[in-house]
Design a protein around this nucleic acid. Structure first.
Lengths: 153, 153
DNA sequence: TATTGTTATACTCTATAACTATA
DNA sequence: TATAGTTATAGAGTATAACAATA
């Protein structure tokens, strides 16, 4: 009965993907909460930190590009940028060729704060990562890349 | 100069952990956003779904245990449980031996809805997982387990 | 007195809809 | 008319502080 076998295999593969999806969902939701809770003793929120990190990695971006990278809608990014600009951590420059757009870049203060935040804030995560076997760290490194591709798709 | 070498190695290892921590943070934040955005066409939020999943995996739990599993503070879990109980998806039973505590369990309706949500809601994630090379799926599976240990610690 | 859970309150994160300015 | 960005508004997610009930 090949059809039954085929169906079983297909069904099994799909079930496995669903189980993996569920497990991954729970893991990600919980780690995200833990990372957000870390905010208490620092001066920027996790969302603001993510925006600063992305600007640091990519250089100047338009608000729209930044929203796309961060997987938020433009109005959400507007709010984040407003706060960051008020605090002097980023700068909105006019776009050289398109008056509708803007170019957002890190200020010197933003770069400094980012470095400091990354050091302080990621202490517990980096510490825990350091305690893991090298193999587990490698797994997370690879997973991070896979997730990025997944999210970008 | 062995001390310089040792310091260099230690410094390098630490820098790598910090880089990994940053990459993992960005990946997790973005995937979490994407998973939350999935809510649009479903009937429970991601947070509610996570609580239901955990009850399904662990069986009856007290609100405190559930909050600990989900990495939220007890009042946050109270709010989630209130909504779920109003909708008949969970049930709060008196604890057999401690009048302060309660035992929360899935109702039949909760179990049904969970199955349905997992099918519908994780369609896009399961679909993308299915498109990945088996190796990448294995990486994510392993990473999920590592993250769970990390978060629990 | 300590612990479990809830209520009260407030802030962060994010979205959709409507608006403005430029292309 | 289409696009980039912002403003207005609302709902979800979460926390801390204060309280009630039980151990």
């Amino acid at each position: 009965m090949p059809s039954v076998t085929t169906e079983s295999l297909a069904g099994a593969a799909s079930a496995l993907d669903t189980a993996l999806a569920s497990a991954l969902r729970l893991s990600v939701v919980r780690l995200n909460r833990r990372l957000r809770a870390q905010r208490a003793d620092t001066s920027v929120t996790l969302t603001q930190l993510a925006a600063l990190s992305t600007l640091d990695l990519h250089g100047a971006l338009t608000p729209g590009e930044l929203a796309a990278h961060e997987k938020v809608q433009p109005p959400s990014m507007t709010r984040v940028l407003t706060v960051l600009e008020e605090r002097g951590l980023v700068l909105r420059r006019p776009h050289p060729s398109d008056g509708r757009q803007a170019l957002v870049e890190l200020t010197e203060a933003g770069r400094d704060l980012l470095a400091q935040e990354v050091r302080m804030r990621e202490a517990w995560l980096a510490q825990r990562l350091a305690e893991l076997p090298a193999e587990d760290r490698e797994t997370l490194r690879a997973a991070s890349a896979v997730i990025d591709r997944l999210v970008a798709s």
